[in-house]
Amino acid sequence: MLDDRARMEAAKKEKVEQILAEFQLQEEDLKKVMRRMQKEMDRGLRLETHEEASVKMLPTYVRSTPEGSEVGDFLSLDLGGTNFRVMLVKVGEGEEGQWSVKTKHQMYSIPEDAMTGTAEMLFDYISECISDFLDKHQMKHKKLPLGFTFSFPVRHEDIDKGILLNWTKGFKASGAEGNNVVGLLRDAIKRRGDFEMDVVAMVNDTVATMISCYYEDHQCEVGMIVGTGCNACYMEEMQNVELVEGDEGRMCVNTEWGAFGDSGELDEFLLEYDRLVDESSANPGQQLYEKLIGGKYMGELVRLVLLRLVDENLLFHGEASEQLRTRGAFETRFVSQVESDTGDRKQIYNILSTLGLRPSTTDCDIVRRACESVSTRAAHMCSAGLAGVINRMRESRSEDVMRITVGVDGSVYKLHPSFKERFHASVRRLTPSCEITFIESEEGSGRGAALVSAVACKKACMLGQ
């Protein structure tokens, strides 16, 4: 009897593995994704193909990295998701002549009506938060230079001027797309009239992360975010950046690689679950690469896999709870928690219980395998993109072996128990001629924006502006 049951459990697990095998990517698959990513990057950089390229390769006008001589107080704003952060950054000489960066910050959550109302409502709310922060720190009387981390696709015309191309991540505030974001912020500050600010720089969160990590390690020339969304930036040779005049030196390019796949480059790798996630998203047909990796989508992918296993009578005796059938019910943090389970399955059992399920031991094991399959594919897909960037940098610099540091931020990278190990191992397999160091950014977005502002202020002083 026991043997029969054991055989049935083994057969069930084997069927589960057959279904989950769809998520496995072979090294040849990853090399294919990497080569296609490089081709799209090239198209994004070139003037004649930029418009139709899915990977936009947006110039950021960040050319210099901090040298350690900029000092002063800077205000930093960070808008990239449902939370908005205001930070005071003091850049100065530390002990023994070292450079020191001290920060104080406060988080504000953005109400739904500000995210989806008008641009005026959104930026009025942001300036209200700045006003509140300055009151708390008794700094209303000071006109501070301000660095703005704005983590949406922007076409820069200068370091302090950028046109919002399109909202992502659930934002829909009308009247912002096609307009200068810094102008919208300046107008809102003017409307309030109770404080003055000098907006000197606007950067993407990947750029802010790279600059913040450069402060720790001067070989950091790539910034990457794996959180709600997924994106990367890197220092490109100016001669390859056709959208900006000049051939000397390097400029940081914001790849906006989340949109890779929007022209069909990933079609052969998309599964039924991916198509369902895409169809029910706020932007169907867009940001397809990001939807395979980002935390906004990972939990939902797992939920759809679990429903398939229920329908195949391989999980929960073929019956799903009402909660499990509800879109968004299986949160991405559950994926991390399930994979963090120590082996007694308590954590998995508790999560499934909150979803109205009474799982068996085998159910718990199957749910864990589903989570591992989805998150491992995410790590491997992400590795193909980064390997594409790094191999490109090595080739354009004609280096036999390139040493490089990548600064990384984002909740999936930082909080998932195995993502970074799987990701690092896969990147290294795909970049055999590179020695890569990964560092995690601390308060990256805010500190990085302030350091970019410090560079901009120093330049302005040198130019006598």
Rank of each mutant, 00 (worst) to 15 (best):
I163C: 01
L88W: 15
R368T: 08
S373C: 11
D3L: 12
D344A: 10
H141D: 07
A450H: 01
H137R: 09
G92W: 14
A449D: 00
D409I: 02
H424N: 12
N283I: 13
V374Q: 06
K15S: 14
G385A: 02
C252Y: 05
S212M: 03
L288T: 15
D274F: 06
G299S: 03
Y349P: 12
P66T: 12
L134Q: 01
K459M: 10
K90M: 13
G170K: 01
H424Q: 08
E290A: 04
G285N: 14
M202T: 03
E440A: 11
G170I: 02
L75I: 14
M210A: 05
G147Q: 05
L315Y: 02
A425G: 11
E93G: 11
R36S: 10
A379F: 00
G72A: 03
N240L: 07
G258I: 12
V86F: 06
Q287H: 12
F438E: 00
K414Y: 09
T326R: 11
H141R: 05
T206R: 02
E268H: 12
A329M: 09
K15M: 15
L315W: 09
N180G: 01
R447S: 02
E22A: 06
H424S: 10
A114Y: 10
D409Q: 04
E93H: 12
G68V: 14
P153G: 03
D409A: 06
G94W: 09
D158V: 00
R429A: 13
M34H: 03
F123E: 06
M462W: 12
E339A: 04
G68P: 15
L122G: 02
E14W: 09
R275E: 07
M121Q: 07
E300W: 04
Y273P: 15
D247H: 00
K56T: 03
D274N: 14
I404T: 10
S76C: 04
F84M: 14
L122P: 03
S321I: 13
D3A: 11
R46T: 14
D247L: 10
G264M: 13
D73K: 09
N283Y: 10
G448P: 01
S64W: 15
C457T: 10
M462L: 11
V91S: 07
D187C: 00
R186F: 01
F84A: 04
E242S: 09
L164Y: 02
G261N: 05
D78R: 02
F438Q: 06
T354H: 07
I189Q: 05
V401F: 09
I348V: 08
I189W: 00
T405H: 14
F84R: 04
M139G: 05
L270E: 15
T255K: 01
T354W: 11
N391T: 11
Y273N: 05
E268D: 09
F423H: 06
V226F: 02
V412Y: 05
R186D: 14
M121A: 12
V455W: 15
R303A: 05
S131M: 09
G285S: 12
P284T: 11
S433E: 09
E279C: 14
A6P: 09
L307D: 15
K142F: 05
L47T: 12
K169W: 02
